[in-house]
């Protein structure tokens, strides 16, 4: 795999007078093409700032960020970077601009000055990829939060990015909406090969990721496969994160003397771990 995004000794602070308060502090970090990375951190950990550094919405105070080899400081390539890395934010209502779903999705490609038939093709493809094709003629404000957020994702997809950065895309959604978004994002990564960076404070959303990065006060506290990171409960505690209740149950059982594996997140895996620990005690 090749590198999609690379951060070298990246620091960031808002305004010169805040030089001493680094939001991002000497970060070395790279994301492989085609991977699914989850960045976890509490409010104020620097995770949203990092997201904006990834596509040049913000420029580092120190160090360099490169996207597909292009330095984000290079203003002559600003558009190349924004085309490669699409962003999805928390509030779907702030991201939708048109009064008809397909017009909203077409907004980006239209601004690229593409041929109408190419725009049509991209819009249809993007809406199919997020499972919203049948709603193409609907009005966005009649849709649910999860559906609106999927339209926002389709709008980004229509720009044919190589990488999508999602900054707490599920924070405002109900459980059903959250599940829809996670399923959509996973499919884009697995089936369409799009590099995904998902930023969240819900640990359970990291279950399917290739890699989990824990951010705290602008620095990386942990970085690895979900099961490896989630077994480090002290680090997670320091980072102000909370174990999913499934993992927490296993950790608590272990504290009570159970011989149980604790690095599980999913419902089925957790039930399995509890049951095999029960049977183990008996044999």
């Amino acid at each position: 795999m090749s590198t999609m995004i690379e951060c070298k000794k990246v620091s960031f602070s808002y305004g010169e007078e805040n030089e001493h308060r680094k939001i991002i502090d000497q970060l070395d970090f790279s994301v492989e093409r085609g991977s699914f990375t989850v960045i976890l951190g509490q409010n104020g950990s620097g995770k949203s700032t990092l997201a904006k550094l990834f596509n040049g919405l913000l420029k580092p105070t120190d160090g360099t960020v490169t996207v597909d080899g292009i330095n984000t400081r290079d203003e002559t390539h600003e558009l190349d970077i924004k085309r490669r890395v699409g962003m999805v934010f928390q509030n779907p209502d702030n991201q939708l601009v048109a009064s008809i779903v397909e017009e909203d999705v077409a907004f980006g490609p239209e601004n690229l000055g593409l041929d109408p038939s190419e725009i049509r093709r991209r819009v249809d493809e993007a809406l199919r990829a997020v499972g919203m094709y049948e709603f193409r003629e609907s009005t966005p404000h009649h849709l649910s939060g999860g559906q609106k957020q999927r339209i926002a994702i389709a709008g980004v997809l229509a720009m044919q990015p190589e990488c999508i950065v999602l900054d707490e895309p599920t924070a405002m959604l109900d459980p059903k909406g959250r599940a829809e978004i996670l399923k959509t994002v996973l499919r884009l990564n697995r089936e369409h090969g799009i590099t995904v960076i998902l930023i969240t404070h819900f640990m359970e959303e990291a279950e399917e990721a290739d890699r989990v990065v824990v951010l705290h006060q602008g620095k990386i506290l942990a970085d690895g496969a979900p099961s490896a990171v989630f077994s480090q409960d002290e680090i997670l505690h320091t980072a102000g994160l909370e174990l999913p209740q499934t993992t927490e149950l296993l950790v608590e059982l272990k504290k009570n003397g159970w011989k149980v594996e604790t690095n599980k997140i999913g419902i089925e895996d957790t039930a399995d771990a509890v049951l095999s620990a029960l049977h183990l005690e008996e044999s």
Partner: peptide, 25 residues
């Protein structure tokens, strides 16, 4: 609640556990 879902899963695998457990504690 998620803990109730874990217990539901355990029941489906043949271990009789109650339906009304909702918290880790």
């Amino acid at each position: 609640p998620i803990i109730a879902r874990v217990f539901e899963e355990m029941r489906e695998r043949g271990t009789e556990v109650p339906e009304d457990i909702f918290s880790v504690q």
